[in-house]
Design a protein around this nucleic acid. Sequence first.
DNA 1: CGTATTTGACCGGCGC
DNA 2: GCGCCGGTCAAATACG
Length: 582
Amino acid sequence: MEEKGVDSIPHEAQEDRKVIGVREESHEQLKVKPDSPTKEGNGKLESAKAEKVEVIEENARLKMMLDRIEKDYHSLQLQFFDILKQDHQLPQKSAPHDDDDDGKEPDQLVSLCLGRRSSPSSDESRKDDKQSTNSRKARDQDDQDWKSSLTLGLDSKLSTETVTNDHNPSSENSVEELNNKEEEAAGETWPPRKIQRTMSNNGDDDVNVAKQSHVKRARVCVRARCDTPTMQDGCQWRKYGQKIAKGNPCPRAYFRCTVAPACPVRKQVQRCLEDMSILITTYEGTHNHPLSVTATAMASTTSAAASMLLSGSSTSQSGLTSTTTTSDHQLHGSSNLYGSSSNFSIYDNSRPKHLYFPNTTTSSSALFPTITLDLTTPSPSSSSSTHVNNKFSSIFHSSSRFPTSSVSFSSGDQSNSSLSTIWGNNGYHSFNSNLPYNNQTHVGSLSLGKQSQEHVYPTFMDKTQQAGTTSQQALAETLTKAITSGPSFRSVVATAISSLVGANQGNQGQREAIVQNLLQTLASNTLSSQDEKGCASSYFNGFSTTSSNSQTRSSLIEAALPLSIVNSSTSIPPSNNKEQNS
DNA sequence: CGTATTTGACCGGCGC
DNA sequence: GCGCCGGTCAAATACG
């Protein structure tokens, strides 16, 4: 009974991963099926044959597209790595290293992970990847730099990928294991307890998988003022347990997502001990089903935050062991750590380790890195950060296993009514099992423009458009500022643009001009909340109009940076956008 | 009657 | 090895 979700997961993941294969199977079925001997069946046979031909043709087209995409992906990846290496050598040399860093590691990068999610067919991509060992060797050097990179993504493999990088920071490892992780993540089941129990009888591989899934999960803790028992985050939840956790008399409720039967996402809800009006919601896992825009925004933001966190963890460790852990005090609300109200501190070159939360509990949650998004503070001022940091420092003092960071999305007065809207309509996070690629969320979220979104989720679009935009703007602003203000982000954006633009144009001056232009656009969008444009979308839109092969490249870049605040509403060239926002 | 919630029991991880 | 604790299960209960 309890395993039914577990059993269904691999099946679904497999379907998602091998849509083309499914098509092939359908042919074979048509082939195998004996023709109906009856005249009545002849008509059906003809139609079936015609359909078969169509399917074959479509299959061939898809395969061609797949090959093309893979080739583009690999070439772009190589170019990206090359330029990344070139462009970062100087800043790295000039940048001071942390005492704790070994000096080999570059400044923390916001890794765009170009194309990493674009590996469409697991099998083919794996083969292709293995065949391209030469190119991978060429990338190895850069991959070393990647181990501290930050993956900005929203899909289910975020956490898996980054955490696995902790164990094996090499990019090739990530690439090769990508599909496995996607598979795991798509069908990732939380609980592994019973699975582990079962798997322990099945062999080492399964055990390892279970262990992996146990280690890789990241959590995103959202603190928000909310009078209702739970936050309205757009998902359907079913309560499956409640506990009085140590340190907080308020019971902690456990929910699992019921939108899809096998959805692995769960959340914990608990009142803050210090301020009962604050609801602490901890999300874990990634939805494996389409979400409403509201839920999408939440999922996207939390996923992005989780990815940042995990990336931060990867930077902070030597690559073999996890170094920090979350504290349940977060869940209890007794602590909060602000990296900075205007910066994701894990981007901060100076000290990702500052974000470590020592574990003061023996909870298994301590195994999970957690990032806290604080929606409760009155203003993203330094004073609030100081306050919380003081609180943090007064509470925690020991070592930790995973980095835990906190990001303030404060936008002034955060009433509970704004909680649902703060996650608003700026994100689009969709799992589409019908997509030919397994990078569900990315393909789904990125390839769709506003029109598509409206087509898919008209009611949600309307709903969210009606919703107040102030909080959304505030969130977008904060997140945008946080991301764009970091030199790492800028450098990597510049690098990515350079790599992509330079793929065909190779004009350094032009590239730099484009980079500058786009960064200005980013800044403009950040400062301008009038049009609710997220930085990434504007950037991407601008880029797509700037580069040749714009469609492919913008898709790739968007795939690399599916920020939660992306609002793929309009495509405005940088110049226009700039004028608009200035 | 079907579904959702409650709640005590159970399990596994971790620290001592 | 034992106990604590967080997390989950599942039977009992509540609800519409």
